[in-house]
Design a protein around this nucleic acid. Structure first.
Lengths: 130, 130
DNA sequence: CCACTTGCTACTAAAACTGTAGCGGAGTAC
DNA sequence: GTACTCCGCTACAGTTTTAGTAGCAAGTGG
């Protein structure tokens, strides 16, 4: 799948409006998940594989290349990590963690959130969102 | 593809943590796009097809069913529209519109944003985010 | 009845994703 | 050297999802 560059046509829009490129990117399997898991801190390839439980290395590598090309993540000594850009994006979607809990309650009134508590992602840099 | 119910295992997580169900849902092709376009106001099936430029009716219908089952959208006289839940989700992701513009500039320093301006989504109910 | 629109299904082809195996390189240990 | 381990990553076959087009059944208006 080609990288959804803002300014070029993407899946779902011929115009290449930035928001469409972004929605294309984020709408790809695991893209959001990778950002989410990386927000916990830098990770090596294999560690990221573990955080994502079931991602295949093929796909992980594909997504990593895309995210890197679009400057949301970067790789260095400690492995992969969010860039400034990536972090600022994460700050926007971070509230989804809390939102999803109240959503779960609405969809399934007797969800036991205590059981499901521990997956919240807390980036060291942005405690206030936790 | 089965509907990612919070509380049940989903793509990418056996635990069914709400955030994982949500990321699964939003990571499906067009899910974010549909929410985004619906934020412009209610739309009939065919109108939604047009807003989404290139979505196939098969997939549109599949996504609509999922989003409806998860209470993010509802259908009534005027067609499909965001529910309260859906709107509150949109409020979170709404800043992506602005974010994507500065991102486009970072990725492509000479993007002409004036050309790409008009796709911002402005729901009547939430002017402040525009 | 006919013409026209709407929501949606059917079907095939193309593309994306999964799952497993394993390569080549780097480090460390003998 | 060679044997071990771990790492990032690729190859490839099989499955699932998505795209793209055609068109049906139901409703509306003449």
């Amino acid at each position: 799948m080609s990288i959804p560059l803002p300014g070029k046509p993407v899946r779902g829009s011929k115009t290449g409006k930035p928001i469409m490129a972004l929605l294309d990117l984020l709408g790809r399997t695991w893209a959001l998940g990778i950002i989410w898991h990386l927000s916990q801190g830098p990770a090596t390839f294999r560690e990221l594989q573990q955080r994502c439980e079931k991602i295949s290395p093929t796909l992980l590598n594909t997504r990593l290349k895309e995210l890197k090309a679009l400057q949301l993540i970067a790789s260095q000594d400690q492995g992969y990590m969010l860039t400034e850009q990536g972090l600022s994006l994460f700050k926007i979607i971070c509230p989804l963690g809390e939102w999803s809990k109240q959503w779960a309650l609405a969809v399934y009134p007797n969800t036991n959130l205590l059981e499901l508590e521990s997956d919240q992602s807390i980036h060291p840099c942005i405690a206030p969102c936790a």
